[in-house]
């Protein structure tokens, strides 16, 4: 198994025969891998990743989001039903968000959320058997960056892979662009990115740059960001 880390694996590949290993080893398998009898088999095509001490998963390219607990997502409110908001996060079911799950919310003090607004929320409950639940506070009751996103931004839809890439890498298109342009960004694990800049032109430029950077290497991203920044500032 160790020799395939960082390499492309495809469904059906068998990674490790558990019986062979002597002694007790606790191996954690993540998305894309499944325990099939006595071995670990790959179910999605992508690159095998590893984290110490023994966590393995497959990074794959996907457009549709499958909710996972603890993920930070951006949802769009579709309905108000009594005490609960129905929020679309791009998964198979709309998620529910209680009005009490906001910072400083009480029965009398309700959040000012309308149909069509965007929220930055965290998935509290996300398993395959029931509808996902969102919250906009952390376990201490503070909002820590979650909550209603103001109406002045732009919501971008992209693939899950791109979002993971942006979150994983320290230097990516956002940092390169950020050296010259001021902007505010919220990244949701469900493939949605909320972006806000001073002008419409900058927002359009940055959103296009983010989408295109998915298949580019670092140097290419740098070259492209430089081009974008130059044209925004008027040189070209």
């Amino acid at each position: 198994m160790e020799d395939s880390i960082g390499k492309v694996v495809i469904p059906g590949d068998i990674l490790q025969n558990l019986d062979e290993k002597k002694g007790k080893i606790k191996v954690t398998v993540g998305p894309g891998l499944i325990r099939d009898g006595s071995h670990i088999a790959v179910t999605k095509s992508g690159i095998l990743r590893h984290r110490e001490p023994s966590v393995f998963w497959v990074d794959c390219h996907q457009k549709r989001y499958v909710p996972a607990r603890g993920d930070n997502v951006i949802g769009i409110v579709t309905a108000k039903q009594g005490d609960v908001f129905k929020v679309d996060i791009g998964s198979s079911e709309p998620a529910s968000l209680s009005f009490m799950a906001f910072e400083a919310a009480t029965k009398r003090n309700r959040p000012n959320l309308n149909v069509g607004d965007c929220v930055n929320a965290k998935l509290l409950v996300a398993n395959k058997d029931c509808e996902p639940e969102l919250v906009c506070i952390d376990s201490y009751g503070r909002s820590s960056g979650l909550g209603i996103l103001p109406n002045e931004g732009f919501l971008l839809q992209c693939s899950i892979g791109l979002v993971r890439q942006l979150l994983r890498n320290k230097f990516n298109v956002l940092t390169f662009l950020g050296k010259a342009i001021q902007y505010e960004v919220a990244i949701g694990m469900n493939g949605r990115i909320w972006l806000h800049c001073h002008t419409v032109r900058e927002t359009i430029a940055i959103s296009n740059a983010i989408c295109r950077s998915e298949l580019m290497s670092d140097e290419e991203v740098q070259i492209m960001s430089k081009k974008v920044v130059d044209s925004l500032q008027g040189f070209e």
Partner: peptide, 28 residues
């Protein structure tokens, strides 16, 4: 990408998920 995948947090596979958002000079 494959050589940069080292740092990842606990249960979420593929990236940090702290929901911080704020103003800044293009900080990610």
């Amino acid at each position: 990408r494959e050589n940069r995948g080292g740092r990842c947090r606990g249960k979420s596979f593929g990236g940090r998920n702290r929901g911080k958002r704020g103003r800044g000079n293009g900080q990610r």
